[in-house]
Structures are given as structure tokens and as C-alpha cells.
Amino acid sequence: MNFNPSTVPPGRFFILLAVITGIAVTLGTVGWPGHEQPRQVVKDSKERKGAPDFELKDSSGKVVHLSDYKGKVVLLDFWATWCGPCGIEIPWFTDFQRKYKDRGFAVLGVSMDDNGWEDVKPFMAEKKINYRIVLGDQKTGDMYGGVEALPTTFMIDRDGRIASIHVGLVDKKEFDDAIQKLL
């Protein structure tokens, strides 16, 4: 189909453009009705880039490197105690940790809370988090391309490469499918 905008009467042309822009802005902010984001597939092995290594401390003060997890499938979750959608996903991740830890899988949570352990430790106890949490910062987020929205979750394969990225709340099955593909 050939569409030549210059043949459309000006008044109707701008009304059409205003409608297109309005729909696009609405969908861009609130998401597609019924299914807000296409399901994230796990990338082909040759398309995966290495996950940046970092050095952060966990709740017992121990230094943790992402490279410590080489050989395992890692679900790396950027989250915060003030993030409601993060709170929905955390029980799923606790379940995955319990279900798959003996198959070479680990969840690693990176808290972006400015108040640090003062806020995070009570939250961990309340939610009965059974996986390791480290405290992240702006620098850590920048290493991963700038983590603007929470939750942002990276699935990392056994070779330390990023297999998929999930921004915002997704469904549990999407994560479970990705984990099973990588294990």
C-alpha cells in the first residue's frame, strides 16, 4: 500500500497524526491492553554478551563477585524495598531458589535502597528471603546499561552471559521458562 501524506487534506492529516500520537503515547506509558509486554525469549547462545562483573557486600558483610557464580545459572534481580512490583516477584524468586538450587541455579538480589541494610535487613526477614542480597548503587546500575526502572532482572547463563532481560513486573512462568531453558 502506498501512502502519500501530501495528498491528504491538511486538516484531516493533522487529526490523523494527533490520533496516532495519542494512541502511541498512551500505549507507551500504560502498556498494551491485556498483555503489557511481549514475552521475553532467551537469546541464542551466540547473541549473548558477558554480564559485567561487580564486587558488592552481602548482609553478613562478605564481599560477593558475580564471577563467583560462574558455572551456575543466575537470576540477577535489581530491586528495592519501596518497589511494589518487586515485592510481587520476590516470593517467586524464593520459590525458584528452593526448587532449583541443587541443579546449579542461584538467585542474587541487588538492592538499590539508599538507606542500605537499615531498610533491607528487616524486609528480608519479613519476606523470608532465602537467597543472597547485596547492596548496589548507581555505579552497579550503570554497569548494566543504566537500571532506571525496578524491578529489572537479568537471566545469566552458566558462562556468565546475559541470556535475557526483564524490565518491570512480568509473570512467574516467563522466568520459570527461562530458567528451565538455561539449566
Binding site: 501524506p5 501530501s6 502511541a24 503515547v25 532506571e148 518491570g168
Partner: peptide, 19 residues
């Protein structure tokens, strides 16, 4: 009109995928 159309189409596309 063609130039305006291209600009607004680009803006709409950017808005659609912007988070």
C-alpha cells in the same frame, strides 16, 4: 507535510517504546 509526518511518526514510535 511529508517532513512533519516523518517527525511525528518518529515521535509516536519513540513514545510507544519509551519507559
Amino acid at each position: 507535510f511529508r517532513s512533519c509526518f516523518k517527525v511525528l511518526l518518529f515521535t509516536a514510535t519513540a513514545a510507544l517504546f519509551a519507559q
